[in-house]
Design a protein around this nucleic acid. Sequence first.
RNA 1: GGAGAAAUGGCAGAGUGGUCGAAUGCGGCAGUCUUGAAAACUGUUGAGGGUCACACCUCCGGGGGUUCGAAUCCCUCUUUCUCCGCCA
Length: 423
Amino acid sequence: MLQLQAIREQKDAIIKALKKRKIDAKPLLESVITLDEKRKAIQTKLDNTLAEGNKLSKEIGMLFKSGKAELANTLKEKTGELKELSKSLGEDLAATAEELKATLYQIPNIPQESVPAGSTEEDNEEVFAEGEIPKLAEGALPHWELAKKYDIIDFELGVKIAGAGFPVYKGKGARLQRALISYFLDKNTAAGYTEMQVPHVTNEASGYGTGQLPDKEGQMYYMPEDDLYLIPTGEVPVTNIFRDTILNEKDFPIKYTSYTPCFRREAGSYGAHVRGLNRLHQFDKVEIVRVEHPSKSYEALEGMVDHVKDILRELKLPYRILRLCGGDLGFTAALTYDFEVFSTAQDRWLEISSVSNFETFQANRLKLRYKDENGKKQLAHTLNGSSLALPRVLAGILENYQTKDGIKIPDVLVPYCGFDIID
RNA sequence: GGAGAAAUGGCAGAGUGGUCGAAUGCGGCAGUCUUGAAAACUGUUGAGGGUCACACCUCCGGGGGUUCGAAUCCCUCUUUCUCCGCCA
């Protein structure tokens, strides 16, 4: 959520910056300003009415004490009027504030300067690429066929138990998943991230805090009986640790990592690109989350990017890094780097990590602040990234490491797996 | 799931109808003292709106009500604790 003050002071600059997202924010911003002015006017009127009422009440109290009951009773009539007035003003105020909030919720984050303009993923900017794309033998298979051949992932069994998009990992497949989770967590904690285990469901307030609500309402599994959402990413519970929090400057940097399953309804997905592990309703992910001083957040973002690079290097997977264009940028992000692994057998890039700086956008919703050196409260910056998402890394490993003898396990994972080939 | 008790500032904990945004202690911050630190002493220290700055307004778990006036009384929801039941 953008800050009201920023909208008031830099309306035109914000409209211009939001054009990178291919949206015309002018009407929204203008109605924010109008609504805010209206809110203030009503608030002032209400405050004055209440102040008058408070004053009268005190006088009445004094009069009763000094035995002037008659005079007190006359004043009571006056307070009755004030009470009715403040009630209706209060209703106006609530309605206006609600409308203002609803409008603010519709405005996405301002893209950072370096974000390229553009509307689709075609316009994303490749900023880095590394790793050899392996030459596979004739007849190399996509991962869903390898999964069947070596009996390590059973998609049909998942359909029986839950539905499409909920695979069952078996034997060495399951062990490889667990190995990846442990390996990622070990890498993250070695880099100074504190491991957290968090709830896999969240309440509505948490959904609003990180921006999944109201923007992505239909993408989350929702349990009406308990008014809870299954988390679409560990970002939600981990970042919400800091909702309604005032930090001290010395608390920075805050670095957390957490392994969670992620649940996504993926309404509207279809086609070949959702085959196998490419797009699932439930998948595992290890997330890194940072809360930073605004002056350090881009340094932190680069640090996170380097960290993910390091992991992909160790796994020896060919990857590239994209800077997302305005049109592809998530609602809440100011700058996002996507990591993609090349799947040789599918001959396409698979997104395996997304690393973003949200600047103050989430912090404003979360009311996540810190006290600066003058004791003034400022919004902190939040960041997060996948480190890493499991299924597509798994797909990448299966496809790129296949040989005629079986699927070799990347060296770094062998100690975690306890075997070096799936055959 | 059943019975009872409770919810107040970073924490602990007073406050049962007006002068209470709230005693006191701890913690935090600043200062005095000290070579430095500790101790001691002094001061300061909740959040939001509003204002150039004041004034002023709101907030004592959430929502509603009684009253001229509510942290305090009533209703309701939520959460926590204790006991019982069930249970990984």
